[in-house]
Computed example of a mutant assay.
Amino acid sequence: MSVQSLARSTPQLHSVEGVLGFTQRSFEPVFSYAYDPPPGVPRTNIVPDERRIRIEDARPLAGDLSLDVEGFAVVRSPTAVRDFWDEAQTLGHPEAAELVKAATGASRVVVYDHTLRRRIDGADDRSAEAPRQPATRAHVDQTVRSGPKRVRDLMGDAAEGLLKKRSAIINVWRPIDRPARDWPLALGDARTFTPDDLIPSELRFPHRVGETYGVAYSPAQRWFYIPDLQPNEALLIKCWDSDAGVARFAPHTGFEDPTTPPGTPPRESIEFRTLAFFD
């Protein structure tokens, strides 16, 4: 079954115009450092490409969005976590695992990481003095190479057996305390991206090298957002899937919504990263 066979038409929707950060195509390997690089080495060689594009309101489609078609979905997900800044590991991880299980039918889900974000004007995303900031460049967290490697790194001796069946990496993204009206998330419809749009990029850490995709702009791409995503809702985002017959990658990024009212509190959010395994 191909992704094209899963396609369905969608109506004309209300939209906003927002500036998204894309990555220019390059003939050289692309990289970024997640820490201070060695002397004389740039932090990144990514050449940014900002574009003002139409981002459609997916609220009218919310009940039909699918991880295996568009690559993302929105679900109602009340949480028992009172303070994600304190309880993300102990309560948020098992809660996110159960959410992905229920939404996908996976037989096993492992939450292996989470990132908390609180937007602060002018803050550096990787500064030790400030929390992580909203992403400003369209990306996918994994690639065709790094997805299986993540399974092997995390699942040890069980990895090869798990990789013989379907596995996927799915993020659970949700706002904290208030709706995500400030700097919401833009999500790309996986059906409208080609492999040439996805640019492998090394993400260099002190003790390991990961790989993500940057996204090159194409006018064929279609972008959506969920306005005012509520704290009792969550976005599920496909970051890699071993099944080539469904949506495998959903590009995403934060963006400044020009319709956000002045004085709106800065966005706080959390994303859980999960491995999902299927029988």
Rank of each mutant, 00 (worst) to 15 (best):
F27Q: 15
D257Q: 04
A106I: 03
R119N: 15
G122W: 06
T274S: 07
E87D: 12
H139G: 07
V81G: 12
D182S: 12
H139Q: 07
A88G: 03
V47T: 13
A58Y: 09
R126K: 09
S26H: 13
N232L: 05
I55C: 08
F224H: 03
R132D: 14
A103C: 03
Y112H: 15
T79A: 11
P78E: 08
E87P: 15
L13T: 10
S269M: 00
R76N: 15
A73Y: 13
K165M: 09
P134K: 10
D125F: 04
E17T: 05
D196Q: 01
V140E: 02
T10W: 03
Q230P: 01
R166G: 10
L163I: 08
G71C: 03
R150L: 13
G71S: 03
V75T: 07
E160P: 02
R52I: 07
A135V: 15
A234C: 05
P11W: 03
P265M: 00
T253L: 00
D125V: 15
S32G: 11
V41T: 14
I226Q: 07
F272I: 00
E268I: 06
R126N: 14
V19T: 13
P78F: 11
T274L: 01
D125A: 15
L13G: 01
P200A: 01
R178E: 05
A135E: 14
A123G: 12
L235R: 06
P78V: 10
E271Y: 05
R76V: 11
P148G: 04
E211Q: 09
E256Y: 11
C239E: 08
Q4R: 10
S201D: 06
P39Q: 12
V30H: 11
E160T: 06
R82M: 13
F22R: 11
P175G: 01
L162A: 13
P179H: 00
L6A: 06
A97V: 08
I226N: 03
R117L: 10
D113V: 07
S32C: 04
A158T: 09
Q142V: 01
L187R: 04
L185S: 02
G92T: 14
Q89N: 07
L154M: 11
P60V: 09
G188S: 08
R166V: 09
Q230L: 08
Y35W: 09
G40Q: 02
A159Y: 00
A234V: 04
A7Y: 12
L65E: 05
F72L: 06
V172C: 12
E202H: 07
S269W: 03
A88S: 15
S107T: 14
D257K: 01
S218A: 14
D257I: 05
A96P: 06
P175C: 02
I270V: 07
Q133C: 11
A186G: 02
H139W: 10
I176R: 08
